[in-house]
Design a protein around this nucleic acid. Structure first.
Lengths: 107, 107
DNA sequence: GAGGAATATTCTTGTCAAGGAATATTTAAA
DNA sequence: TTTAAATATTCCTTGACAAGAATATTCCTC
């Protein structure tokens, strides 16, 4: 698991940027406006997200379109696989417990 | 999505602690030993993980057993749900494209 | 080509987090 | 009851990072 992904997302504005871009690419100005950020801060946060490969840029003349990149999130997903097993186990245990309750409901 | 989870995991030693605890609870000393940390640093990192609710402690006389807590990871998992749709879409598109290639292989 | 829009970068400053060293606290053992 | 083990906490210093302000860069339009 690349820690850079966590670092990048561990900042409120950057997490909001990612969530914004989930609905489609946006320019710096649009992002700054919707998140009430000043343009330089938006650019700087996007730079961090870019370095973490969470977004890509496409220059369109004056504008720059930033788009979400899925790979780091897929890596997070894969990392979580190691733990899904566990909370499923726990759920299974609860499930098993409830079924045992079912089979002997009185006392 | 609680940003505290990302912050807590955005530190190499803490991520390794979490991965260690995936195999079962450990004491501070065991964690410090396996990760080549000094005891105070181990305690401090565990404190951060505790505040982020990523671990729980159980005092056993002198020792303290730290155990992994799944809830924050489940929350991450739920957050990722918003994005899984997208990378599946992309995969579907690729799949569709490949199938189109299949159906007209020669030009 | 001058001016303005969109964006990136630099510099500075304040805040926060991490490691090291030392110390406090609790508990077991002798 | 003194001693040692296991752990937590404090203080200090240092480095990273975020916001603000200013400035540079690129491109479009007139």
């Amino acid at each position: 698991m690349d820690i850079g992904t966590f670092s990048a997302l561990a900042e409120p504005n950057r997490l909001r940027i990612v969530e914004l871009l989930a609905h489609g690419p946006l320019t710096v100005g649009e992002i700054a406006e919707r998140l009430n950020l000043r343009q330089p801060q938006a650019s700087k946060h996007l730079r961090v997200l870019l370095d973490a490969r969470l977004v890509t840029v496409h220059a369109d003349a004056n504008r720059r379109n930033y788009a979400l990149q899925m790979e780091p999130l897929q890596e997070m997903d894969a990392w979580l696989n190691n733990y899904r097993r566990m909370w499923n186990e726990r759920f299974d245990n609860l499930d098993q417990y409830l079924q045992e309750l079912q089979s002997k409901p009185e006392q």
